[in-house]
Amino acid sequence: MIDFYYWPTPNGHKISIALEEMELEYAVKPINILTGEQHTPEFIAISPNNRVPAIVDHDGPDGNPHAVFESGAILLYLAQKYDKFWPADPVEQSLVTQWLFFQCANVGPMFGQCGYFNGYAAERIEHGINRYCGETKRLYGLIDRRLGEHEYLAGEKYSLADMATFPWMIEKQQKFHGIDVTEFPNVQRWLAAINSRPGAQRGLQVMAKDLKIGNPTEEAREAFFGRN
């Protein structure tokens, strides 16, 4: 059994989608990041950077419980342990890893900062909006070019890289980031293909009613952004 420490954020959705796509048994352990539950000592013992998602695999290496934090690391752990969505070919493995790391190093941080300055910041800061939302649009263009050459990000097969990137580019996130997706037809095609997957849809529905975008209360802003 896998304990899944989660809140319905794009990074959280990466793992809920993977768990559903891999058809693994898991128990959701909600961590309400809007009320500060990510700052408890109990959660920090599992996720030292006090961020969701995280997992505890109760059947980890040598049969012992094993905690994993960081969404990209969780994806790799699950894929390699259960041999699902992990290609046997070393070149394909490398491509999946490259595009997964691309998401973790570029899409997540840049899109996240765009969302902060465009929707969560207490005051409007034009430089932040221009910097990060401009970079978000540039990354959309890069991804669109890649998807003009290949069916999926890592090649012709759906992979961890797609599971990781997709939640950051769904319709709710496009609106939040000020993106007109019609400018990116290859992204549109790719989004439609993943949206048609039952596992992806099930993953997006985990605690979907709790997803909040924009206009946070002062208490939620302090819990989410204000702690040292």
Rank of each mutant, 00 (worst) to 15 (best):
H150F: 07
K157S: 14
I170D: 00
A200Q: 09
S159C: 09
E149N: 15
R197E: 06
V181R: 03
M169Y: 01
T182P: 09
P198C: 08
E171Q: 03
M169E: 01
E151W: 02
K157I: 12
E151Q: 05
I170G: 00
A193K: 10
P185H: 08
W190V: 15
S159I: 12
Q188R: 13
Y158E: 01
M207S: 12
T182R: 12
G148N: 06
F166R: 00
S196Y: 04
K209H: 14
K209Q: 14
A192C: 05
Q173I: 11
A208Y: 03
L204D: 10
Q188C: 14
D180W: 06
Q205Y: 02
A200E: 08
E156H: 03
A161T: 01
R146W: 13
Q173T: 09
E149H: 14
H150Q: 05
G155H: 14
I194Y: 15
I179R: 01
F176S: 11
V206K: 01
Q188S: 12
A193I: 09
E171Y: 06
K172F: 07
M163G: 02
D180K: 06
Q188L: 05
H150C: 06
M207Q: 13
I179G: 02
T182S: 13
G148C: 13
Y152D: 06
G199H: 12
E156F: 07
W168Y: 04
V187I: 15
M207D: 09
G155E: 06
A161G: 00
A200V: 14
L211Y: 06
K212E: 08
W190D: 10
V181E: 03
Q205R: 12
P167K: 02
H150L: 04
M163P: 02
Y152H: 15
A208D: 03
H177E: 13
W168P: 01
L147R: 05
K172M: 12
D180R: 04
L160F: 04
V187H: 08
A193G: 07
A193R: 14
A192Y: 03
G199K: 10
P185F: 09
W168T: 01
R202M: 06
L211S: 03
L204G: 04
F176L: 15
F184W: 14
P198L: 11
P185T: 04
A164R: 01
D210Y: 15
A208L: 03
Q201T: 15
A200H: 13
